[in-house]
Amino acid sequence: MKETNNIAIELIDVERSFGTQQVLRKVNLVVEEGTTTVIVGPSGQGKSVMLKHMLGLLRPDRGQVLVYGQDLARLGKSQLNEVRKDYGVLFQNAALFDSMNIFDNVALPLRERTEFGEDEIRDCVEEKLALMDLDGVNEKYPAQLSGGMKKRVGLARALVMNPRIVFFDEPTTGLDVSRSNEIYRLFYQTQARLKYTAVIVSHDVPKIFKLADRVALIANGVVEGSMTPEEFQLSEDPNIRSFVRETMGPLYCSKEEETCGL
């Protein structure tokens, strides 16, 4: 694990309800700078809601979401935009702008947020697209690309401003094994190169553990853990245990397995 003490994101007692349904009850989580935190959990337990709180798209009913020490709920729109300038986001369905071609999609943040000329923009965009092994797609539209390619374009767009924190919402959902591995490889390479803090919401257990410095489980609106993948798999916490057993089978839960090998 990479050693670092700076806290990038901290959630303190975050609560959020929709109507009568309480989705988050006292969620606490710390994301350290430069690390990769993976949030796992069954569907419908509030993973995406938690992510939206970190992105400032939702505000908590109670509690705080601190990004580099700033409480997002207390920030005005322009201050929130300042915080978001450090963000890159890869959405579950990539959320590419479907009426723009691939080049314009990736170029948009540069055009809207920088004073770069078209030549500089072209260089930046092509560099990021090449990093994603995407050649010859500049003029295509998102609907003309496969799911895996869309995700790679989404990742190129997320990284084009060299963000400090990158969020991944289910980065491999809907992709086959080789396409998923491709996304993981690109993630690994780009993080090594750009040194960003990563927050990944994922179902892809246990594969995602390979990328994680920290793993947290969200179940019943509460976050359990935030520990290394090894600690997570060996945890005595009943919720984590049952999640691990459900997703990875009984292999990792047997006493013998825990005491020898791992």
Binding site: L57, N81, E82, V89, A95, F97, S99, P109, E112, R113
Partner: peptide, 25 residues
């Protein structure tokens, strides 16, 4: 319909997360 589809497919969220104001843009 255009803006509705952008809302549904998270394109407006994507704009906000890129610090691009959807009102202005």
């Amino acid at each position: 319909a255009e803006i509705g589809i952008m809302r549904n497919s998270e394109q407006i969220d994507a704009l906000e997360c890129m610090a691009i104001d959807p009102y202005k843009y």
